[in-house]
């Protein structure tokens, strides 16, 4: 860890109670992950639904208590902080939620929404009207939008309001949960460009949570791929995209339909359904769906290892351009 690190997550676990009232059984939504984000860096968490990426984001933001591990933000341990002790830190870390419109209070005007952080953290000495104007212009909305209500906004406009609110207090870190979810293709780029632009101008660090790998490619410096609450591969975006080392990463990358009818779809098909968190598979938890599975994977859990500048949890990391073995019985 160096001075530039503003967020550090170490061996964090999030447990949810499962089963009946008297059952002590718990499922691990996040099962021991570690990451660090430096000032001005964009880190992407990628995974499919149920992989624990949103839970992890909420844990970092203190909306979800963790059952093990520690989270340090700007040199201060935050997972043990109470609500009031956490409050001043919330000015330094803001979070954007998935639904562009649904994350805005429906009875509040845009002007009230973007200045809500000032009202929560003390608006003394601030001219809220001027702040509204400044924030709206930062995200490229005309000042007369201040009087509109969320339901009068398009998805892209609502997302801009969300961004304006997130940067209001000039935080050091923005956590963005699916920032392009629910947006049209022609608007997705707008939002990503805006986030990139603000990141550069304000020196923000960002944690972006997404299932869209194409998004990651263009905005993130580093990426972590999550499966069943664990990181299976972490590395720089270039490395991971150029040559995925974990079979799951490779499958995710190949699962993105590209807008070209003639492209050969040499796709890595993932058979079977995602296992339940209640009954985690033995050994490597990806073995039930892995096209390259071998006997060792079924019994022995792979320890994350550093391979060529990235961390991979796999017994048999892929060579660049590896193709799945041709013959493979489809499991029922």
């Amino acid at each position: 860890m160096n001075d530039a690190t503003i967020l550090s997550v170490r061996d964090v676990e999030v447990a949810f109670p499962a089963g009946g009232l008297l059952s002590r059984q718990a499922i691990l939504g996040v099962a021991g992950v570690s990451l660090g984000i430096s000032r001005g860096e964009t880190f992407a968490l990628v995974g499919e639904s149920g992989s624990g990426k949103t839970t992890l984001a909420r844990a970092i933001n203190g909306l979800q208590t963790i059952s093990a591990g520690e989270i340090t933000f700007e040199g201060q341990r935050i997972d043990t902080l109470g609500k009031s002790a956490m409050k001043p830190l919330r000015q330094r870390m803001s979070m954007m939620f998935q639904d562009p419109v649904g994350s805005l209070s429906p009875r509040m005007t845009v002007g009230d929404l973007v200045t809500e952080p000032f009202r929560i953290h003390g608006a003394q000495g601030r001219n809220l009207k001027a702040e509204t104007k400044r924030l709206l212009s930062l995200v490229g909305l005309p000042p007369d939008f201040a009087g509109r209500f969320p339901h009068q906004l398009s998805g892209g406009q609502a997302r801009r309001v969300g961004v304006a609110r997130a940067i209001a207090l000039e935080p050091a870190l923005i956590i963005a949960d699916e920032p392009t979810a629910g947006l049209d293709v022609s608007v997705q780029g707008e939002v990503l460009n805006l986030l990139n632009d603000l990141r550069e101008r304000l020196g923000l660090a960002m944690l972006i949570i997404t299932h869209n790998l194409h998004v990651v490619h263009h905005v993130a410096d580093r990426v972590a791929v999550m499966y069943l609450g664990r990181f299976v591969e972490t590395g720089t975006t270039e490395d991971v995209f150029d040559a995925p080392a974990h079979p799951y990463t490779a499958a995710l990358l190949s699962a993105n339909p590209e807008p070209d009818p003639d492209r050969a779809h040499d796709r890595i098909a993932l058979p079977a359904e995602v296992p339940s968190l209640l009954r985690r598979p033995s050994g490597c938890e990806f073995h039930t769906r892995c096209p390259w599975v071998q006997d060792r994977c079924r019994t022995e859990a792979p320890a994350p290892a550093d391979i060529g500048g990235r961390r991979v949890a796999c017994h048999f990391p892929l060579a660049p351009g590896a193709r799945p073995p041709a013959h493979r019985k489809e499991p029922a």
């Binding site: 909420r58 933001n61 203190g62 909306l63 956490m86 409050k87 919330r90 000015q91 803001s94 979070m95 954007m96 939620f97 998935q98 639904d99 649904g102 994350s103 805005l104 209070s105 429906p106 809500e116 952080p117 929560i120 953290h121 609110r165």
Partner: peptide, 14 residues
């Protein structure tokens, strides 16, 4: 559990 209430919590609203 709506997102706008969670957003308010994450901003530190009482």
């Amino acid at each position: 559990s709506s997102e706008f209430v969670m957003a308010a919590q994450s901003m530190g609203a009482s």
